[in-house]
């Protein structure tokens, strides 16, 4: 790993003031540090945000669950409040990586990285999340813009993620057996007005599958998906799964999720 200057910061202002075109914010470091070791990324300044108290914690109101950016996956997975309000979100957190990753990795880090196979971005899309940054609020459908890309500007810091509590929801994924990243993951959330179905792992970026969402909004049952065609166009094809296989898995895991709701 190339050398850098490490800064531990105590408030958001201090952290964002230090940010530059050659810096990175550090939360759990579960992607940042391995990427730096592999030479895929290098920074002059690493700005640690874990000691900023306001960035950590879980708040549940009747209609929303708000999770601070540096809240660890294990905290979300074990939170009684999250389990009660949105059980599928706690279950998603419990399925990320392994126990040691869950003890360090954070929700803010996961969505800022926007790995095409990460779990949390699908929760953001399905649960109509609002991403709170240090200077604005962005809806999830405008936040994830492409492979490892988000609408975050340089030096902009995620403070919290606010999820809408659905009537019912479920996340089902087909995990890579080694990494537990989603080969395909489908998050189904039934809201009062419509059903959202977010798919991760299948394409270069998480997306809301309008065909599946539309069919389930009309009739919330797995049989409603029998005649929905899933195109493999634009789907990832790699050593783990072909595009056609992924397209098939999207439908199968959407059905599984609906049945488990």
């Amino acid at each position: 790993m190339k050398t850098f200057n490490y800064h531990s910061t105590k408030d958001v202002k201090e952290a964002t003031k230090l940010a530059s075109s050659s810096s990175a914010f550090l939360a759990g470091g579960m992607t940042t540090l391995p990427s730096m070791k592999l030479g895929l990324a290098s920074y002059k300044d690493i700005i640690d945000i874990k000691r900023i108290k306001k960035l950590s914690g879980i708040k549940v109101s009747g209609k929303t669950v708000t999770i601070g950016a540096t809240t660890k996956h294990a905290e979300v997975a074990h939170s009684k409040e999250v389990k009660k309000a949105i059980p599928s979100l706690a279950a998603l957190a419990e399925g990320i990586g392994d126990p040691q990753v869950r003890n360090r990795g954070t929700i803010g880090g996961s969505i800022a990285n926007n790995d095409p196979s990460a779990d949390y971005p699908s929760a953001c899309i399905a649960l109509n999340a609002t991403i709170h940054t240090n200077n604005r609020k962005v809806s999830a459908d405008k936040f994830f813009t492409g492979m490892f890309e988000t609408s975050l500007k340089k030096g902009e810091l995620i403070e919290a993620v606010e999820f809408q509590v659905p009537e019912k929801s479920c996340y089902k994924k087909y995990p890579n057996p080694a990494s537990r990243y989603a080969i395909v993951g489908v998050y189904v959330a039934k809201h009062k007005s419509a059903v959202n179905v977010a798919v991760t792992g299948a394409k270069s970026c998480v997306y809301n599958d309008q065909n599946i969402s539309g069919a389930l909004s009309k009739s919330f049952s797995s049989s409603a998906l029998d005649n929905v065609k899933i195109s493999s166009s634009g789907m990832n094809s790699d050593v783990h799964a072909s595009a056609d296989y992924r397209a098939n898995m999207v439908k199968i895991f959407a059905k599984k999720a609906v049945e488990a709701c």
Binding site: Y6, L33, R104, S179
Partner: peptide, 25 residues
Amino acid sequence: TSQCGACVVHVDGKSIKSCTALAAD
């Protein structure tokens, strides 16, 4: 690179992979 787990230690009572945490942190 935090995959194999040979480096697991406890920090403040929780297991973590010591290859993927900065000492300064």
